[in-house]
Simulated scan of single mutants.
Amino acid sequence: MGSLQKLLKRNKVKAAYKACRDPEYFSRHANVHKPTYLWIGCVDSRVAAERIMDVEPGEILTFRNIANQCQPGESSIESVIELALEKFGIDQILVCGHYDCGGITQAVCGHGDSPLNSWVDPIRDLHSQFAKELDSLEKENKINTMSRINVAAQVAHLASHPVVKQCWEQGRKLEVHGVMFDTGTGDLLDLEISQSAPSTLEDSALLEKLATQAIAEPARA
Rank of each mutant, 00 (worst) to 15 (best):
G2A: 08
Q5T: 04
Q5Y: 04
Q5H: 06
K9P: 04
R10D: 14
A15N: 13
Y17K: 08
K18L: 12
K18R: 14
A19M: 09
C20D: 11
C20T: 11
Y25K: 01
F26K: 04
N31T: 14
V32A: 05
K34A: 13
P35I: 01
Y37P: 00
W39K: 02
W39D: 00
I40D: 01
E50I: 06
G58D: 05
E59Y: 02
E59P: 01
L61T: 04
T62C: 11
T62G: 03
F63Y: 13
Q71L: 02
V80T: 07
V80P: 00
F88Y: 15
F88C: 01
D91L: 01
Q92H: 08
L94M: 09
V95Y: 03
G97K: 05
Y99F: 15
Y99C: 13
C101L: 07
G102L: 05
I104K: 03
V108C: 11
C109A: 08
H111C: 06
L116I: 15
S118D: 13
W119E: 00
W119M: 00
D121G: 01
P122G: 02
E133P: 04
E133M: 11
S136I: 11
S136C: 13
S136Q: 08
L137G: 13
E138R: 12
K142L: 15
T145A: 15
T145Y: 11
M146E: 10
R148Q: 10
V151T: 09
V155K: 02
V155E: 00
H157E: 03
A159M: 03
H161N: 15
V164W: 02
K165R: 15
Q166W: 10
C167K: 14
W168V: 06
R172C: 08
E175K: 15
V176P: 05
V176Y: 02
V176R: 06
H177L: 07
G178R: 06
V179L: 10
T183I: 13
T183W: 07
G184I: 08
T185H: 07
T185A: 06
D187T: 12
L188N: 05
L191M: 13
Q195I: 10
S196V: 05
S196E: 14
S199L: 12
D203A: 15
A205N: 04
K209G: 02
A211E: 05
T212G: 04
E217H: 12
E217P: 10
R220P: 03
